[in-house]
Design a protein around this nucleic acid. Structure first.
Length: 468
RNA sequence: GCCCCCAUCGUCUAGUGGCCUAGGACACCACCCUUUCAAGGUGGCGGCACGGGUUCGAAUCCCGUUGGGGGUGCCA
């Protein structure tokens, strides 16, 4: 075990990896790397997840996607957290023997009745001094001492919790199994965790955990509670209402470095005047002490903007490679056998500045690979009804048919010359051709596309439309 | 109910008592560039929640109010 600080990241598998979890993981990772520490992945072993190993694998995949690789020396685990370990029971036993915990036979109904009667809320400490021993149906409760606890938090400073506001919480259930809180602390101690960086929602539970660390005879770890990620309603991101799965963003063609960069800027900003920064700079500059205190809205629009930046930064060959899964997919808009990598490569550079996500790419070039692109009727009517458009279409078709040199510049000059004869400026003149070839009024630069399509195909499509 | 956290443009943020007439980015608008659409360039719109203090001086410190969020289980 390395001697550096040890950061634990403990997601619970739910079938997808939450963007909030991704950011927390990244925060842990950045600091662990910078300090030469260790990132300890401990996956919670929930009842549901037990039957679905793929959920846990999904977490590891998603972590790898955002650059947290399990073969990195700073990565430790994954560990699978059991809630039924001997160590948890043993710790509970020690607490009971030391008088730090006691048994209680009250049912939840009885607790509620007592609360109602006294006007207070929650458990009132009724069994504290009844000297009960263990027995089936009795829970083991922690005896919260007098006084107050101060949580030293790297992002929030000191937070004081008065003990009377914390009720004697349950450590062991009536059936003898340990509660998550206990299990977690015992595991943290066992794994020599020194830093716990997690979402702010856990802050109110921290004094309980800290009390447990102390009662078990250990120095509590360094805490850091990072602000929540919220939706436009300012509510905690939820799976039902919000798009929170990193896998989904990955599948839609968001680039991992863009996602990582964006996530890091939620609650923190890199020094200097640039917010688009490489991971190496983040790793060097990120500090938990600099993290914000307020919740941040996860803004997909801004993520998309980051993604566009990252796509444009890609060397064109890398862009082509990155697009491949979207082009060679069964979901592509064309029959697979019609796709031609060489044609796409010829178009790649003009497509690159037009896409904000990779999943948009097929839609930008579909007309190249489709046998006959569907003509947008409305666009066609609008275009062809402008005076001179029909003539331009017919004459350009003829000119293109006889063209000896099939290249973009020539195609452009030819069309513009025809357009001018009919009083149509560049933009207007190309419109009928564009619609005839691509089916739409907007798309990538026309003449490059025509060159790629080839003379025969272009003339065929133009003729077909011109005669219709 | 009780406890905790939070509060700068619509959004993400810079700002740690004078460099603030509050800076940047996304979004939005306009213009330029331009073969459509983008990209790029230039400019614009727009904010310190409120009220009291402290101070020569407050976005920045303190108190209160309001507003938002989170937690509070024999869930994990």
């Amino acid at each position: 075990m390395s001697s550096g600080p040890r950061f634990r990241f403990a997601p619970s598998p739910t079938g997808f990896f939450h963007v909030g979890g991704a950011r927390t993981a990244l925060y842990n990772w950045a600091v662990a790397k910078r300090l030469g520490g260790t990132f300890v992945l401990r996956v919670e072993d929930t009842d549901e997840a037990r039957n679905r190993p793929e959920w846990t694998e999904g977490i590891i995949d998603a972590l790898a996607w955002i650059g947290i690789h399990d073969d990195d020396p700073a990565f430790e685990g994954p560990y699978f957290q059991s809630h039924y370990a001997e160590a948890h029971l043993a710790a509970a036993q020690r607490l009971f023997q030391a008088g730090a915990a006691y048994y209680c036979d009250l049912t939840s109904e009885q607790i509620q009745e007592r609360a109602k009667a006294s006007g207070a809320s929650g458990y009132d400490g009724y069994s504290r001094n009844r000297g009960l021993g263990p027995a089936p149906g009795r829970v083991l409760r922690f005896r919260v001492p007098e006084g107050a606890s101060t949580v030293h938090d790297l992002v929030r400073g000191d937070v004081v919790f008065e003990h009377p506001a914390i009720e004697d919480f349950v450590l062991l259930r009536g059936n003898g199994t340990p509660m998550f809180l206990l299990a977690n602390v015992v595991d943290d101690i066992e794994m020599q965790i020194s830093h716990v960086v997690r979402a702010e929602e856990h802050l109110p539970n921290t004094p309980k955990q800290q009390l447990l660390w102390q009662a078990l005879g250990h120095q509590p770890p360094v805490w850091a509670h990072v602000p929540l990620l919220v939706n436009e309603q300012r509510k905690k991101l939820s799976k039902r209402r919000d798009k929170v799965a990193v896998e989904q963003y990955r599948d839609e063609g968001y680039l991992a470095p863009a996602m990582v960069n964006y996530l890091m800027t939620l609650g923190w900003s890199p020094p200097g005047d640039q917010e688009i920064v490489p991971w190496s700079a983040i790793e060097r500059d990120f500090r938990l002490e600099d993290v914000n205190h307020s919740p941040a809205f996860f803004d997909v629009k801004k993520l998309a903007a980051f993604n566009g930046e990252y796509i444009r930064m890609l060397p064109v060959d890398d862009f082509i490679a990155a697009c491949e899964p979207f082009l060679q997919s069964a979901d592509a808009p064309w029959p697979p056998e019609r796709f031609d990598p060489a044609k796409f490569a010829a178009m790649a550079s003009v497509v690159q500045s037009r896409a904000t996500t990779l999943s948009e790419v097929p839609g930008l070039v579909d007309f190249i690979f489709l046998a006959d692109p569907v003509l947008d009727e409305q666009a066609w009517q609008k275009t062809i009804s402008t005076p001179g458009a029909k003539e331009v279409l017919v004459e350009t078709t003829e000119a293109y048919r006889q063209l000896p040199h099939w290249e973009a510049a020539v195609l452009k000059d030819t069309l513009e010359a025809v357009g001018e004869q009919h009083g149509l400026k560049k933009g207007k003149a190309q419109a009928p051709i564009r619609v005839a070839i691509t089916g739409r009024t907007v798309g990538p630069p026309l003449f490059e596309a025509l060159e790629v399509l080839g003379q025969q195909e272009v003339v065929r499509r133009l003729t077909k439309v011109a005669e219709a």
